[in-house]
Design a binder for these strands. Structure first.
Length: 871
RNA sequence: GGGAGUUUAGCUCAGUUGGUUUAGAGCAUCUGCCUUACAAGCAGAGGGUCACAGGUUCGACUCCUGUAACUCCCACCA
């Protein structure tokens, strides 16, 4: 069969993914093997594959594929998150394009559109994961709004309510005026924003005096309930207890004193607006101030403002500034930069707003989850995130779980027209508990809460609810697959999601949800900016996969992703990946060329050495990879395998055993080469599944598949063979370098003289050495040889005899440089050994080592000096 | 303002409990090669006072203190 010039990834990817699916390798059911379970961090149902997913899912796939090769029953559960705000925004936008407004639709009509949209576009990201080669169990695809899942979310809400962990409360919340919904603190992004600081004069009642306050939000003065100064502030002491008048509307507000106010900021006097600022609200609570809410939910001013009613808050700001100037209330303005909160979803400036919301009180629930991480029951990789987690969990705040949205899990609270309510899953249940609780006389009419639950209130159940661990407790799947093995996720959602999953796992399964959390880095672009949709700096993954191949993309992202460190994404690493697939492909082509030339002979001594050496290197690397994998150093492990394949196998081993042109190859060499190649493919397979599977099948007729092949146990590498191999490699490199520097063309043959006391060391490798440096013969000697070119490695010296006269000037220069270097080194070692305190304190093996360095350096200096004399 | 992290070759990073030569790898660069698997390749080479300043030690990239720069998280300065 004729093999193509390069690896053609497109057809191989499709062929093998379908083959794996047909064979059912990815589908898992409980059996007697140990389970290795991973749940995917569910991407937004609106999502398309970006770099973060690519990194995250490649890592999971590497772990899962390796576990499968180690004999685990692996189960990697795919799925999507309903992402209430993001999806609802998408659907609203889609409707707007059809000239339909959300407000013109009933809730049910809107949800019909939303579900239709979800069916149509919601699966895109899952299809993209298939393109990447992910070993996901597609029989278990889950969605956070599946029937059972939905019921579990509602039931968890009711349960927490009954246990007293959920309450309804008026609180200052972050309000998104565009989406008209509450946001959690985590959904608010603070950005440095240039603003104006306005200094306003308030008259003091009954005097001619004025008090000047500074504010960035003059449009909220109509909501002022007080002016506050520091009690220690001499400037204002006489005013405390008096009243000021709000400009333009002349409302009478008290002047109060509180430590909260800093004397040296602004004027030291603060306007207190409890309805529109978190701190002012707390101050208001403390001093019993009136709460005057002057804003509508869309950010326009309402009747309570008295003036500028109906104007948007920012338009109102401009207009009121004019009015204040006209009325001589404006003292001055200053440029001022401060952090302003923006909605993560809509980018609207977040409005602090007093609102009635549902809350989970987290303090008590969090304790077992805090413990689980601190006592090591759950390991964080890298460990530095433990501190972050502890800090957060020890200061955990209550969780606002209601969202003013329709797409999501509707809050199971039912109200009568007076606002009395009960919590129940269905209307019938609600009527029953309402009747028990309130004993109404007539018929009961209840309406359900309009709001939905925060998306994270469903995703925190993910690790067990994908196995229906809550809806069908004790079922075979949950018993077998839970707790899961490793969660792979981005550090930015440690609080949103990771912490809460641990809380839910502890509360409902009485067990941790996962044994390890592996935090990936954040993917950044070449300029160091985080890759994000809004910056538009994330490349199109599907296009990259088409261009470079899935294996190359996986390689490129894995080679540059140390655990927990951010990674700068650069397309050149994908190129490196593609070049690597090509290298593997060409190694295959070489070995295939030998297929027809296998002889019945056995290996010569020299090939026998190559076989032993390769076997030892392979064992050594297998050991290393096992260690690195155990420490989650996936990037390091890949580098190690890469170098084993490229350098050791291709550059050294294959060249050593390669027969001459159209010469036969010994049967055992051929067979062992195929064996080595197969083991390399196995090591590489978790990272690059497609090409390895393809090459595995092309290498030999096979009835099984690589992805199911079990790893063979690691054997001890032969250290003596490895040392001899190093000697050989050093000699080859040194001699090639010498040839290069003396302008010997590759085709010019040489005669090689080896000056050594241990000829036997070279007997088993001499023909390899001769071939690699193009020597027509090798002679041994114990005496110096008169030759123009010589090379020193270790204790031995090599002389190159060439037919062509050699100019020795350059060589002489170089040797002299090396001599100076060596002599400098010698002095430093002698100094060290001459230091009494070193000899007294250092460990004996360290001293022995230094002595060896000393004698080695001396030997080498002698050899070089000898050479220099002959030149 | 509080906390965490980073700083090693032009770029991206290794460097495990301080002592395997005077610090490693990949990419990029340079030189020579279209050598019968691979120019997406082969054979070589050059390149770093380990951010800076002190300290501990016989010995520091590694441990301690301080400084600077960058990054992230948290926080109520209008």
């Amino acid at each position: 069969m004729e093999l193509s010039k390069n690896f053609e990834h497109q057809q191989a990817e499709q062929k093998w993914y379908n083959h794996w699916l047909d064979k059912g390798y990815f589908f898992s059911t409980p059996d007697e093997r140990p389970a290795f379970t991973v749940v995917i961090p569910p991407p937004n149902v609106t999502g398309i594959l970006h770099m973060g997913h690519c990194l995250n899912n490649t890592i999971q796939d590497v772990l899962v594929r390796r576990a499968a090769m180690q004999g685990y029953n692996t189960c990697w559960v795919p799925g999507t998150d309903h992402a209430s705000i993001a999806t609802e925004a998408k659907v609203v936008q889609m409707l707007r394009e059809k000239n339909i407004t959300k407000s013109s639709l009933s809730r049910d009509e809107f949800l019909q559109y939303a579900w239709k949209w979800k069916e149509q576009y919601g699966g895109i990201i899952l299809e993209q994961l298939k393109k990447m080669g992910c070993r996901l169990d597609w029989n278990r695809t889950s969605f956070t709004m599946d029937d059972d899942y939905y019921k579990s979310v509602i039931s968890v809400f009711i349960d927490l309510y009954k246990k007293g962990h959920i309450y309804r409360g008026k609180r200052m919340i972050n309000w998104d005026v565009k989406a008209k919904t509450a946001l959690s603190d985590e959904e608010v992004i603070r950005k440095e924003t240039k603003q104006q600081l306005y200094y306003l004069r308030y008259s003091i009642e009954g005097t001619d005096e004025k008090i000047i306050i500074a504010t960035v939000r003059p449009e909220t003065i109509m909501g002022d309930s007080a002016i506050c100064v520091n009690p220690a502030d001499e400037r204002y002491k006489h005013l405390v207890g008096k009243f000021a008048l709000v400009p333009l509307i002349n409302r009478r507000i008290p002047i109060i004193a509180d430590d909260y106010v800093t004397m040296d900021f602004g004027t030291g006097a603060l306007k207190v607006t409890p309805a529109h600022d978190t701190n002012d609200y707390q101050l208001g609570q403390k001093h019993n101030l009136e709460i005057i809410d002057i804003l509508n939910e869309d950010g326009t001013l309402n009747e309570a403002a008295q003036i500028l009613v109906g104007e948007d808050r920012f338009a109102a700001r401009k207009k009121i500034v004019q009015l204040l100037q006209d009325g001589q209330y404006m003292e001055k303005t200053e440029d001022y930069t401060s952090e302003v909160g923006y909605s993560e979803r809509t980018d609207a400036v977040v409005e602090p707003r007093l609102s009635l919301q549902w809350w989970v009180s987290m303090k008590e629930l969090s304790l077992p989850a805090l413990d689980a991480v601190m006592n090591g029951e759950i390991a964080f990789i890298p460990e530095k995130f433990k501190n972050l987690y502890r800090h957060w969990m020890e200061n955990v705040k209550d969780w606002c779980i209601s969202r003013q949205l329709w797409w999501g899990h509707r809050i199971p609270a039912w109200y009568d027209e007076k606002g009395n309510y009960v919590v129940a899953a269905t209307e019938a249940d609600a009527i029953q508990s309402y009747t028990e609780k309130y004993k109404p006389s007539g018929s009961v009419q209840l309406t359900q809460d309009e709001d939905c639950l925060d998306t994270w209130f469903s995703s925190w159940l993910w690790p067990f609810e994908v196995f229906k661990g809550y809806s069908h407790p004790g079922n075979a799947d949950i018993n077998y697959y839970y707790p899961t093995a490793t969660l792979v996720t981005a550090p930015e959602i440690i609080f949103f999601w990771v912490a809460r999953m641990i809380v839910a796992g502890k509360e409902y399964m009485k067990e941790i949800p996962f044994k390890q959390v592996y935090f990936t880095g954040i993917v950044r672009d070449k300029q160091g900016r985080k890759m994000s949709k809004s910056l538009g700096n994330s490349p199109d993954l599907v296009q990259l996969i088409e261009q470079y191949g899935a294996d190359a993309v996986r390689f490129g992202i894995m080679i540059s992703s140390p655990a927990g460190n951010d990674l700068l994404f650069d397309e050149s690493s994908l190129e490196q990946g593609r070049n690597f697939t090509n290298k593997v492909w060409n190694a295959l082509k070489l070995v295939k060329m030998w297929e027809a030339r296998v002889s019945t002979n056995t290996a010569t001594d020299n090939s026998a050495f190559a076989l032993q050496w390769m076997e030892s290197r392979l064992s050594q690397v297998k050991e290393e990879v096992e260690t690195l994998m155990g420490q989650f150093r996936l990037s390091e492990a890949l580098k190690t395998i890469y170098s084993l394949v490229w350098d050791d196998f291709c550059s050294w081993y294959l060249e050593w055993v390669k027969p001459g042109f159209e010469q036969p190859i010994a049967a055992d060499v051929y067979q062992k080469t195929i064996g080595f190649f197969t083991e390399l493919l196995q090591l590489l397979h978790p990272y690059m599944p497609f090409i390895t599977e393809e090459v595995y099948h092309l290498l030999q007729e096979r009835t099984d598949d690589l992805c199911e092949l079990q790893l063979t146990p690691v054997s001890k590498p032969g250290m003596a063979i490895l040392a001899q191999g190093n000697l050989l490699k050093e000699a080859i490199s040194g001699l090639r370098d010498a040839r290069n520097k003396n302008q010997l063309k590759p085709k010019e043959e040489i005669v090689l003289h080896i000056q050594t006391a241990e000829q036997d060391t070279y007997r088993t490798i001499e023909s390899i050495l001769a071939k690699q440096v193009n020597a027509k013969s090798i002679a041994y000697t114990t005496e110096a040889v008169a030759a123009a070119i010589s090379v020193v490695t270790g204790k031995d010296k090599f002389y190159i005899e060439s037919e062509r006269p050699i100019d020795t000037a350059a060589q002489k220069d170089e040797l002299e440089k090396e001599l100076v270097h060596l002599q400098g080194f010698l002095v430093s070692v002698e100094k060290k050994l001459g230091n009494e305190r070193f000899v007294q304190n250092a460990k004996p093996e360290v001293i022995a080592l230094e002595r060896k360095k000393l004698s080695d350096a001396k030997d080498k200096i002698n050899l070089i000096e000898g050479t220099l004399k002959t030149l």
